[in-house]
């Protein structure tokens, strides 16, 4: 039993870590890199709370081995928005009160950002299907969907 040395990029920073072969990317982020923004809601890819991107591709961090991200670029919620300027998704989620407990919020932001990167003008249905794997038990999704649509509009330069 030996640990694996992994060199990768997380939120733009070059990082190195040692992990057990069975540890997931989510374990690595939370337990080794102190990035607890991605949450474990299920550990089986059913809830989306651990959403991150690897080389721009949206994935569930609980379904990726830590060892697999060698040489990749990982982005988590901690890498979204600047200290003095939130990402439009973050700002619209706050303005729309699109969170109650907030546990699903990091995953929703990461997932919605990935959507808007490939589809800047999604319909309500497109947002709903894209986010179907991000479970929220508090809001009934209404305000989340509105916030994502508003952020998309803002990013397209439309007036709110």
């Amino acid at each position: 039993m030996s640990k694996i040395h992994v060199s990768t990029q997380v939120n733009g920073d070059q990082v190195e870590f040692l992990c057990e072969p069975e540890e997931t990317l989510l374990d690595v982020l939370r337990d080794h890199l102190n990035l607890t923004g991605a949450k474990e809601g299920c550990g089986t890819g059913d809830c989306g709370a651990c959403s991150v991107t690897i080389d721009g591709r949206l994935v569930a961090a609980c379904l990726v081995l830590g060892a697999e991200v060698e040489g990749s670029a990982v982005e988590t919620v901690e890498g979204i928005g600047a200290p003095d300027a939130l990402h439009p998704l973050q700002r619209q989620i706050l303005q729309h009160a699109a969170l109650q407990c907030g546990i699903c919020t990091p995953g929703i932001i990461v997932a919605a950002k990935a959507l808007l990167a490939q589809n800047p003008d999604p319909s309500e249905q497109e947002v709903r299907y894209w986010l179907a794997g991000n479970l929220c038990r508090c809001t009934g999704y209404d305000k989340i969907i509105r916030a994502v649509l508003a952020a998309a509009g803002e990013m397209r330069g439309e007036n709110p």
Binding site: K39, V77, E78, I109
Partner: peptide, 15 residues
């Protein structure tokens, strides 16, 4: 508590 919750800083039970 909004900012902490959209930036991943908010500390939940397992954090």
């Amino acid at each position: 508590d909004g900012l902490d919750k959209v930036t991943g800083k908010a500390m939940f039970g397992a954090d």
